[in-house]
Nucleic acid binder design. Structure first.
Length: 425
DNA sequence: GCGATCAGTT
DNA sequence: CACAACTGATCGC
């Protein structure tokens, strides 16, 4: 992509067109109701949710794209100053409602920006995305994939959301007399709640604003704001804490369930997990065996709290499948926070194109190459953040060390940290 | 009042 | 231990 032309999920100055993958807060930093920098392209569902999230947003700036359809844009190349054609197609990302990837085709070649996505082979949505990509690309090869590297490390492994949803149902069934609370965000995990609602044939309580979101998503039957109607409540994740659960339990026995890709652990406490009391609904042994590998992921985080590996991001093996399927020339991580922006690419490049690991003597070289590559994806945002952070005196030791290391490392490598890096690709 | 940034939380 | 996604406090304007 050429700088100054296209921004995806970045809302700083200096682009001709802006693309939104989905409406989670960490992808909309800089977007506000008074946005006026340029047209915002997004999916129909995101467009529908837009006004809820940003009341008063200038509707004339929103351009909705039909999924799986090519659109042509005429942009100005900042390097040549002349008009250039860019084609774009949005593809189902299977992350949260309205989430899409963007496939771009232009003078810069073919670029796929995945945004956050889940590449779940058992999911129909993923199959749709797969077919769209196949159809869109024909025999062409993607030059660069900007990939959701959130869980791009072999240590991250979790089951399909269908399996995880059943785990949640199993936990709920284990406590027939308990109230249940489930931690969720402002968007996402609707399928999990729907599954629970349908299997157990109950409504699920959500807070009033969340009910509005449900209605905007066309979900009218399975949710309620009347707490007397149900024992299962979905609550904002930030109000879901050990204290909350302990407080609730002084009034009525209550179990909390956290759906998350990461197995949370309570610091220094007993991590033991009593799964013996958990039964499958069907008692199906095969089902049980299939899940066996993952059962350890159901953690009893606390006396009253379970965590279940229900993730809206791809796990490592899914990322591997994705990359193998598309065979791009280049891979760059989107998530550049903390120290994770190096390892992810490293892991993917290791498996990419070959079933075995690189010979030991090549690994160092490969790592250096990959690290250099990832370096170029650094945004000025993260740089200024680092600069500001290192100036501060009051800071946790860990943070201070981290920023120093990464500042030093970036400086040593001579990474270009100009506004050029900020805007797009 | 506003956006930007940071700390803290699960 | 980590992550994503979010809230609330604080700062500068």
């Amino acid at each position: 992509m050429e700088r100054g032309m296209i921004s995806v999920d970045r809302w700083g100055e200096g682009s001709q067109v802006y693309f939104l993958t989905h409406l989670h807060a960490d992808h909309t930093v800089g977007l506000s109701p008074r946005w006026n920098k340029g047209p915002v392209f997004c999916s129909h569902i995101s467009a529908r949710l837009f006004h809820h999230k940003f009341p008063g947003f200038d509707t004339s700036l929103i351009r909705t794209l039909e999924i799986g359809q090519w659109y042509s844009l005429s942009l100005v190349s900042l390097t040549t100053g002349s008009q250039t054609k860019v084609e774009v197609m949005s593809i189902e990302a299977n992350h949260c409602p309205g989430a899409v990837m963007y496939l771009f085709r232009g003078v810069f070649g073919i670029t796929l920006y995945t945004g956050d996505f889940r590449w779940e082979v058992t999911s129909e949505t993923t199959q749709m995305g797969k077919n769209m990509l196949l159809k869109a690309l024909k025999n062409d090869k993607i030059d660069t994939i900007y990939i959701d590297n959130t869980y791009c490390n072999p240590s991250y492994s979790f089951p399909s959301r269908e399996v995880a949803a059943q785990q949640v149902v199993n936990i709920i069934n284990t406590y027939p007399e308990h109230d249940i609370i489930i931690g969720i965000d402002t968007l996402g995990k609707e399928d999990l709640l729907l599954y629970i609602s349908k299997i157990l044939n109950i409504k699920i309580w959500v807070w009033p604003e969340r009910l509005q979101t449900m209605h905007l998503l066309g979900l009218h039957d399975n949710f309620t704001t009347k707490s007397t109607l149900t024992r299962v409540r979905a609550v904002p994740r930030y109000s879901f804490s050990v204290e909350t659960l302990e407080g609730l339990n002084t009034m009525h026995p209550t179990i909390g369930i956290m759906p998350s890709g990461l197995p949370w652990k309570l610091k220094g406490k007993d991590k033991s997990c009593d799964l013996s009391s958990l039964k499958t609904e069907t008692g199906n042994d095969l089902h049980m065996n299939m899940r066996n590998r993952y059962t350890n992921n159901i953690e009893k985080y606390h006396q009253y709290i379970y965590t279940v590996p229900y993730s809206d991001h791809s796990c490592f093996s899914e990322l591997v499948e994705f990359v193998k399927y598309l065979c791009p020339n280049n891979i760059k991580g989107i998530v550049s926070s903390s120290l994770s922006y190096i390892d992810p690419c490293y892991h993917l490049h290791n498996i990419y194109g070959t079933s075995s690991l690189f010979p030991k003597h090549l690994i160092k070289e490969e790592r250096a190459r990959v690290e250099g590559e990832c370096e170029s994806t650094l945004s000025c945002d993260s740089f200024t953040q680092v600069k500001l952070k290192s100036k501060r005196i009051k800071h946790s030791r860990l943070h201070l060390r981290k920023t120093r290391v990464s500042l030093l490392r970036r400086f040593k490598r001579g990474a270009k940290l100009t506004t050029e890096d900020c805007s797009d690709d």
